[in-house]
Design a binder for these strands. Structure first.
Lengths: 188, 188
DNA sequence: TGACTATTAAACACAGTGTTTATTATATTG
DNA sequence: CAATATAATAAACACTGTGTTTAATAGTCA
């Protein structure tokens, strides 16, 4: 039983729509991008766009979710091979992924991007690991929650700066710095 | 010499346009708000809107800048009275201001708001104070810059959580927590 | 009061939206 | 390959909102 999602035509349509949207997004703000414009660039009928997406923002959200899934899969792949789960290496994996997909990541993870989405990226790491540290009874629960918020958004800021600076620091340098900054908060 | 900015009619027009915009913003996303809608709610001619603003986003930006100026003035007022500059009290002042202007601040400082603007709010504090700590030669300059980014955006996350939780923690509690979390990073 | 100018109503051409229709093109399956 | 299914298309539709211009009106200020 095949769903319409597997149809080659559907795959192609979605692919070129995403490509055109990202292309436009690199040139101007999403608020200035029209559906008509996306469709013309992708050479796809406007009615077809509406068959798949509600509007630009819906398309954006779906691209974000895909990216999140891809990063997650990339991490899981690593975790499966090496059984010893090393925090530094795990975070380094995220930086690696971002570097390998710099074009899209620069758009979605920059300061223009959606903070809520960016937080979700960082949560990929911290939900699995560091949150445990804060739950070891050192801090009160309410305090730990604030530290968690601080850590997550703080890391978003670090990634943004890294991207703005042209990713000139190595992924290992970044990962170690993040570990240093974040375990700091939780180890006392 | 009076500029047109001082004209009562202009003041009124801008005031009601801002009020209506904020009212709409509390009901729906900015992407769903039209200029026509704002003007109808404010009972202002659409041509008059264009005499003052380019679009919704321009209006938004101007409201943000005003809020930033107001917070800055609020802090300066305090700094003038008490000569002893206390970091905790300074940060507490910001939380106080937010609490006193909760309606608007909840919109502009929430996770839906613009991160770049939110960073600027936090910079009000850190440009004056903590950045010095990182420049005392403990960290390398490049490291200090990342710590600065981490701190600024981290604090944005804390404020967002505070607002989401209905501002149930006292302003003093919040200020002390922030001092603890942020001087932590810079004192070693 | 008189000069000034912000605001207004009305109209304009225009661009983009979201949906529907019948037709065409392509993919899948037996 | 042929038959079936369905995705994509072109064209048209009414509609909403945009951004600007015009001349008239109303409010402000000194």
């Amino acid at each position: 039983m095949r769903s319409s999602k597997d149809d080659r035509r559907v795959k192609y349509t979605k692919m070129v729509l995403k490509e055109s949207f990202i292309k436009l997004l690199s040139k101007k703000d999403i608020t200035q991008i029209t559906i008509k414009e996306i469709c013309e660039d992708a050479d796809i009928n406007r009615a077809t766009f509406y068959a798949h997406y509600n509007d630009q923002y819906d398309l954006m959200r779906k691209i974000e979710n895909e990216l999140l899934e891809n990063i997650s899969a990339y991490i899981s792949e690593y975790a499966r091979k090496d059984n010893h789960f090393n925090d530094v290496e795990l975070i380094e994996k995220i930086f690696e992924y971002i570097k390998e997909n710099a074009q899209l990541c620069k758009l979605l993870l920059s300061k223009k991007g959606d903070l809520d989405f960016q937080k979700r990226v960082m949560m990929l790491v911290y939900d699995k690991n560091l949150i445990n540290l804060t739950n070891e009874g050192i801090f009160s629960k309410e305090y730990a929650e604030y530290i968690y918020s601080y850590t997550i958004t703080g890391c978003v800021g670090i990634i943004q700066k890294w991207l703005e600076d042209g990713m000139d620091k190595s992924t290992r340098f970044m990962a170690e710095m993040i570990i240093k900054l974040t375990t700091y908060n939780t180890s006392k």
